[in-house]
């Protein structure tokens, strides 16, 4: 936590991190109400890693998972690692300019989805026996029946919801950054007004593409 941005008062940081963590938790509640097969439990992390820096994003992720442990069940604590690595990808990604325009933002979303899923798969396989208790389990069963190894099936199914989730998360984070007071967003350079209809088409296209590619790879590798 070395890089306290000079012009943001420390009390602001002390409050912004918990608010972002609470948004992470409540995001999960909103997608539940709206019946969506994504999680949106890392938007706050993304915003903080852009506004305050990657390591503050890591802290947000850890705080989020501590809160989830006390609100839902401590068995989800290992997923703090996923939230933390996401913060690093987004934070450093924005530093090297990957949040600047639409195509780069899309790229950042895809990269973060792959990194975060790579982090999540070992946890799912070793602690949860490959199960997530979510929508992705249906796809896991399909891939298993196609002859995939457990970890391949878990990765292939979870990357689908993760892609939708993380691409959506970075674009929502951009919209949220625009709504922040100027004092907080002077440091970040993000895309202007992402075209959300295009984002939706991109997500649907990428998810279907990856699902088919995974299926193809599994079938040919047998």
């Amino acid at each position: 936590m070395s890089e306290v941005p000079g012009r943001i008062p420390p009390t602001y940081i002390a409050v912004l991190v918990p608010v972002a963590a609470a948004i992470n938790v409540v995001g999960g509640y909103i997608v539940n109400v709206l019946h969506l097969p994504v999680f949106l439990d890392m938007i706050g992390t993304c915003v903080v890693s852009w506004v305050l820096g990657p390591w503050w994003g890591v802290l947000t992720g850890v705080v989020t998972n501590f809160a989830i442990a006390l609100l839902i069940n401590p068995v989800y604590l290992p997923f703090a690692a996923c939230n933390a690595i996401g913060a690093l990808v987004w934070g450093y990604g924005a530093r090297i300019g990957l949040a600047k325009d639409f195509p780069r933002l899309l790229f950042l979303g895809i990269v973060s989805a792959f990194v975060i899923t790579s982090m999540a798969v070992p946890i799912y396989v070793f602690v949860f026996g490959g199960a997530t208790g979510h929508f992705a389990d249906i796809m896991t069963a399909v891939y298993l029946q196609m002859g995939a190894q457990l970890w391949v099936a878990v990765f292939s199914s979870n990357i689908l919801s993760s892609l939708a989730d993380k691409i959506l998360a970075v674009f929502l984070a951009v919209l949220i950054i625009e709504a922040l007071p100027p004092m907080l967003r002077y440091k970040v350079e993000v895309a202007k007004q992402p075209r959300l209809r295009v984002v939706m088409y991109a997500i649907v296209g990428i998810v279907i593409g990856v699902a088919l590619a995974a299926g193809f790879v599994i079938l040919t590798a047998k």
Binding site: I43, L175, I176, M200
Partner: peptide, 24 residues
């Protein structure tokens, strides 16, 4: 559906930012 996310998330964040200022 996905289109409902933006009208739900953005006001929530905007009001949370007000809360950030009060709490700070």
């Amino acid at each position: 559906g996905l289109t409902a996310i933006i009208p739900s998330m953005i006001p929530l964040f905007a009001s949370s930012m007000e809360r950030v200022q009060q709490l700070a």
